[in-house]
Nucleic acid binder design. Structure first.
Length: 297
DNA sequence: GGAATAACCTGGATGC
DNA sequence: TGCATCCAGGTTATTC
């Protein structure tokens, strides 16, 4: 379940391998991994062959690799189970391999970039780059104020230097919805999924059903601080892996699952007060929180 | 226009 | 052993 830290780990792994690399060949095994590229597999392959990739950029859970001289980028979203793996040229196919790019790098030589995805919620696409609305770089790893058109509506993430804390507070003050629902809204702040929403709310002692507008300025600041702490710690530990569905570009799992305080700990004692963590249905998924430390307001 | 919900998707786990 | 059902959840289209 890749959220911001997991996608950032992938971006950092990809960046040195793809920056300056030329795409030699493209193989689409499964059209379902091109749902973000409506022109289809042949168009995708044709436009990508001979393209030179100039960076690996991330905003929230979206990754993209700008293509030199075209005003376009190769865009990717990992969905729930997507993986971008670096493999030796000619390596055997992955179990859920959907798309493979063969690339040639001037320093590292030939490599394969494999997009594997069990549940096919993820997708790749070629998309045009458009200017950012605030004039800041499009995302982490970008040197220009450009973002793929299909990512333009996604907010900056809380680790982005251009993230506007005050604008975030004003947005929450206008929302009647539960604060967790707002945290999962990628047009408010990107990169936060179910795991890190639960963890940050636990750390900030905020009940997930608290109406966003009920949070004081101090509570919003505390929430932002905890979001950043949780995401940075997860990043330092290589992300959260519960199974084989999240791995870095080398196929290795992250370790943050051992540091979780709320998510996935239903019935286990709260690390703060010792009371049992509760799991409740929320938005077709689950919320995990401590009913003693995170009281409804 | 904002908020809430359903649908997409697949394999592992569980129950019968 | 085999089949049916449930569950995980990010994004987007649809509905209210």
């Amino acid at each position: 379940m890749p959220e911001l830290p997991e996608v950032e780990v992938v971006r950092r792994g990809l960046a040195p391998a793809v920056t300056g690399a030329r795409v030699v060949a493209v193989t689409v095994h499964d059209d379902r991994s091109l749902t973000r590229h409506p022109a289809g597999a042949i168009d995708f392959e044709t436009r990508l062959v001979d393209a030179v990739l100039v960076a690996a950029v991330r905003r929230g859970k979206f990754l993209w690799m700008p293509v030199a001289g075209t005003g376009e980028a190769l865009v990717g979203h990992l969905g729930m189970s997507g993986q971008l793996l670096l493999r030796e040229p000619g390596a055997a196919g992955e179990r859920f391999e959907r798309i493979r790019l063969d690339i040639a790098h001037p320093v590292h030589g030939e490599l394969a970039v494999v997009f594997a995805d069990q549940r096919t919620f993820g997708s790749l696409a070629i998309d045009r780059l458009v200017p950012t609305t605030d004039g800041a770089p499009g995302g982490l790893g970008a040197s220009t104020p450009l973002v793929p058109a299909q990512v333009a509506h996604i907010a900056r993430d809380v680790l982005d230097p251009a993230f506007d804390d005050e604008d975030f507070r004003r947005t929450l003050a206008r929302k009647d919805s539960a604060v967790k629902r707002v945290l999962l809204d990628q047009t408010v702040a990107s990169g936060i999924g179910n795991i890190y929403a639960d963890e940050a709310l636990w750390a900030a002692r905020i009940h997930p059903e608290t109406p966003a507008r009920a949070l004081t300025t101090r509570a919003v600041r505390a929430l932002l601080a905890q979001l950043r702490l949780v995401l940075e710690k997860a990043l330092a530990e290589g992300g959260t892996s519960f199974d084989a569905q999240y791995v870095n570009v080398n196929g290795q799992a992250g370790y943050f699952a051992h540091s979780l305080n709320a998510y996935g700990r239903a019935g286990l004692p709260c690390a703060r007060c010792g009371g049992p963590i509760r799991r409740e249905a929320f938005m077709n998924r689950s919320s995990h929180f401590c009913p003693r430390c995170q009281r409804p307001r």
